[in-house]
């Protein structure tokens, strides 16, 4: 198949695949459709990135590569297959990735479902001071500060970041499983009691 690019140049699928592959290798963040078009110098290229990615992905799978293309944070990125974790760990000074504490996970859960939130919102749900978990999450760039609340005190507002989506392998916050409704919890508790 041949794609028209910038009205003149004709790009063959193989050539496009190579371009996309090069972009995936060099991209510091997930490669989005918009960014891809910017790279082509044509904001409305009509070249279906998703299809090319699909072709590349099946090439990788057929030839048995140690990595694959992951759809994450609204774009695409190359990640390694899980089975090489034990080797890859040796590349880093710390022994692999540090897991988040229960406190940090609770804080993160509240922010991701209720964003933007203030520290006070988080603390009133958790019932404990959440300074240190917020600090950890900011340091690890899973959360970011996005502006201030309009109300009195103008408290800082926290949101999840692109790194958060990457960390949990999500394409967007909309992909988070639905938070259980209070009614569901009550129903379960009733069952437990019976």
């Amino acid at each position: 198949m041949i794609y028209i690019y910038q009205g003149v140049a004709l790009l063959e699928i193989n050539e496009l695949k190579q371009i996309v592959e090069a972009l995936l290798i060099a991209t510091p963040e997930p490669l989005t459709e918009a960014r891809f078009n910017t790279c082509l110098g044509d904001s409305d290229s009509k070249i279906p990135l998703k299809e090319i990615i699909g072709e590349l992905a099946s090439d990788y799978e057929k030839s048995g590569r140690a990595f694959f293309i992951k759809e994450v944070a609204g774009g695409y990125q190359i990640v390694t297959n899980a089975e090489y974790e034990s080797y890859i760990k040796g590349l880093f000074s710390k022994s692999g990735k540090l897991r988040l504490s229960q406190a940090a996970l609770e804080t993160l859960a509240i922010v991701s479902y209720r964003q933007p939130v203030t520290r006070n919102d988080i603390e009133s749900i958790r019932g404990v001071s959440s300074d240190s978990s917020l600090r950890t999450l900011l340091d690890r760039k899973l959360l970011e500060i996005r502006g201030r609340e309009d109300g009195p005190g103008r408290a800082l507002l926290y949101r999840t970041s692109t790194e958060f989506l990457q960390y949990f392998g999500l394409n967007s916050v909309k992909d988070l499983p639905r938070l259980k409704e209070v009614e569901d919890i009550l129903a379960e508790d009733d069952n437990e009691l019976v």
């Binding site: 390694t80 089975e83 974790e85 692999g96 988040l100 996970l105 949990f168 392998g169 499983p177 259980k180």
Partner: peptide
């Protein structure tokens, strides 16, 4: 309860490293 989902996702994503 949602944190257990996050924990699960974390565990699942942990062995994958980004290029």
């Amino acid at each position: 309860e949602a944190t257990s989902t996050f924990s699960e996702m974390e565990r699942f994503e942990r062995p994958h490293y980004y290029h």
